[in-house]
Design a protein around this nucleic acid. Structure first.
Lengths: 203, 203
DNA sequence: AATTAGTTTAACCATTTGGTTAAGACTGCA
DNA sequence: TGCAGTCTTAACCAAATGGTTAAACTAATT
């Protein structure tokens, strides 16, 4: 039985590779067409123009690594377990699509309004942080953690989860890690980052 | 007494703005010329081509926020003070040039070899990490800290210092901070990140 | 077989973009 | 004053790039 990949799917896949590698400005429609095994005219037949095609890739990438937050913070686990799960799932997800983080970082800095538009349209207005603050306050009331600004805490956690992928080439070089060693490093971080955070905030 | 800004300086300043805002692929030579108040031919008279001009901006940006590491780790301070100084200086430096971090992140991911070439040419081959390991081992021997992988520790510290600038638009939105609030947030981080790290590793 | 709608292609077009040319202006200096 | 080197400009060029057109192919539908 065959795979049956539609032309549209081939285009999307090719566009993803090109846009993630070179960004909106650096990607070439001709290269996308070549990679998809079609010609430029067909590309424009399926997706009117570069902007439209980019929008699709951006959106798909964005929602692949942004909104995992909600579910984790909804659970009835204690605060430390929430942190463990959050870190694990987040590093796992980004690691499976490791080119997305630097791509999004660049494109969002270039035009933040695109991201804001997406969030406003799709999401129930920025719940994740509020949910996280709730969990934090409960833990504080139970005396499990020391007082610390939740915005600081969340920023620290996200930074440690995301940055290794954005700064991968620098870290790889500074720490003398080849591809294999870097993968193992990321694997360890799935649990060690959480323990690091917990040691920093436990009462 | 006049300012006396040479044409060359005007070009560099203009190129910096355009390249940092749009990246190599997105920046336009015409825009750089316009911003510098000259025409394109003069631009090419001073800097042969786009690549050459980009190289200069990249290099200047790179060495502005990368090698602060050396000096801090050389001091005779105890480990905790080293961390405090490192975090403070690093966030301070990046904060003063807040567009450099996302610019470098993008360009280094696009072509890591450029960074590696720069480091090999200019630096005494990746000392910072070794220096940091030394300081770590001394602190461990004195029983000041618990055992923890130095590569993890360094990655955590750098992540928390750098990421807020790379992911600024996202963080700003998630945490509902306007420009002013974000500046104050960064200001607080200059000391709080270090204390966070210290709590996580102290014996 | 004829019709029709969706799909695919080769050739073409207009604009943008990095880069060049040739000539003029300004400067210090003999 | 004239000369030489530096600086500056308007006009121009070739290639790349996003996008279009019109024709042709394919597969169901009548």
């Amino acid at each position: 039985m065959e795979k049956e990949i539609s032309t549209e799917e081939k285009i999307i896949a090719a566009a993803k590779v090109e846009f993630l590698a070179h960004g909106m400005a650096g990607a070439r429609m001709q290269d996308i067409a070549d990679r998809a095994g079609i010609n430029k005219a067909l590309l424009h037949y399926y997706f009117r123009n570069k902007e439209k095609l980019f929008e699709i890739i951006f959106q798909e990438s964005f929602f692949k690594i942004i909104p995992q937050l909600h579910e984790v913070f909804n659970s009835t686990d204690d605060f430390f377990m929430i942190i463990r799960k959050f870190v694990f799932v987040y590093i796992q997800t980004i690691g499976e699509n490791s080119f997305i983080a630097p791509f999004l970082a660049h494109e969002i800095n270039r035009d933040p309004s695109r991201m804001i538009g997406l969030l406003e349209k799709a999401g129930g207005k920025r719940l994740p942080f509020e949910k996280m603050v709730d969990a934090y306050q409960k833990a504080l009331a139970k005396g499990e953690i020391i007082p610390c600004a939740p915005d600081m805490l969340l920023t620290n956690i996200i930074s440690m989860c995301v940055f290794p992928f954005v700064g991968k080439p620098i870290l790889q070089h500074v720490l003398s890690k080849d591809e294999q060693a870097f993968r193992e490093f990321v694997e360890r971080r799935k649990v060690e980052v959480a323990e690091f955070v917990i040691r920093a905030i436990k009462a």
